[in-house]
């Protein structure tokens, strides 16, 4: 879905965004009050300038309205692949963005993500994946890399990976796999404004992705292994 029709469906009461290239921030009105918006569009490859622009919006929201929820709208093809960005420390810019979001959470802002286009690895890690709850539209795509590239890296025939991906959610792209693994709460259909209100009304409960992954059978070990280490088991 394109950004503008998405915003209209999410915010029938109105919104206002500032968009530079395919990176935007702003605010919107909901029946439950104002929310801060940040996000990317048109499969934006997130670079250092983009990460700073998003972080600035998060910091401003935390400074002026610490309790105001932050909605992240994600459509990114990943991190920008550029020597210049690596030279200046793109990992630090992404870390900075993640840290601004963590601060916002600690100051009382609810963090909600909606993947409405693509969500790919590094670009997704630094903001969308920082949310308390992550949702996706039915037509969205979430992945680390496509299956053909996977086949090259793991030196496995593509048809074998395709067959495996029907039984295992751990490596093949797809929103449903991320739902099964507990990273995506659910897929939104139809009334997006109502879905958003329901998400904002849910209490923050910390990082529960491992528990959900175990409940849903997509990530059966992570929860128990982390608990065993946390308990200091030999």
């Amino acid at each position: 879905m394109q950004l503008m029709p998405l915003l209209e469906r999410l915010f029938p009461l109105g919104h206002s965004i500032l968009r530079r290239d395919d990176v935007f921030s702003g605010s919107a009105r909901t029946a439950a009050g104002e929310v801060t918006l940040i996000g990317t569009a048109n499969r934006r490859e997130v670079g250092i300038d983009d990460a700073l622009q998003l972080a600035a919006a998060v910091l401003a929201s935390t400074r002026e309205h610490p309790q105001r929820p932050i909605l992240m709208l994600v459509d990114t093809a990943g991190q920008r692949l550029s020597r210049r960005d690596e030279l200046l420390g793109i990992n630090a810019y992404f870390a900075h963005l993640a840290r601004t979001l963590e601060l916002a959470r600690r100051r009382g802002a609810r963090l909600v993500t909606l993947v409405y286009g693509e969500a790919v690895s590094g670009g997704f890690l630094s903001f969308g994946l920082m949310a308390d709850q992550i949702y996706a539209l039915a037509g969205a795509q979430i992945r680390v890399m496509d299956l053909r590239a996977m086949a090259r890296v793991t030196k496995q025939p593509l048809d074998k990976l395709e067959a495996l991906s029907r039984s295992s959610p751990v490596f093949a792209p797809g929103v449903d796999n991320y739902v099964r693994m507990g990273a995506v709460e659910s897929v939104w259909q139809d009334d997006l404004a109502a879905a958003l209100l329901a998400a904002l009304a849910r209490p923050a409960e910390g990082d529960r992705r491992r528990e959900r992954g175990a409940e849903r059978g997509g990530r059966t070990l992570a929860c128990d292994v982390a608990a065993a280490v946390r308990a200091g088991e030999a």
Partner: peptide
């Protein structure tokens, strides 16, 4: 990459932790 989705989510969990 052999378990890319699990790895991506795991790194997000490490980051938050």
């Amino acid at each position: 990459l052999h378990e890319a989705n699990a790895g991506l989510i795991a790194i997000s969990e490490i980051l938050r932790a």
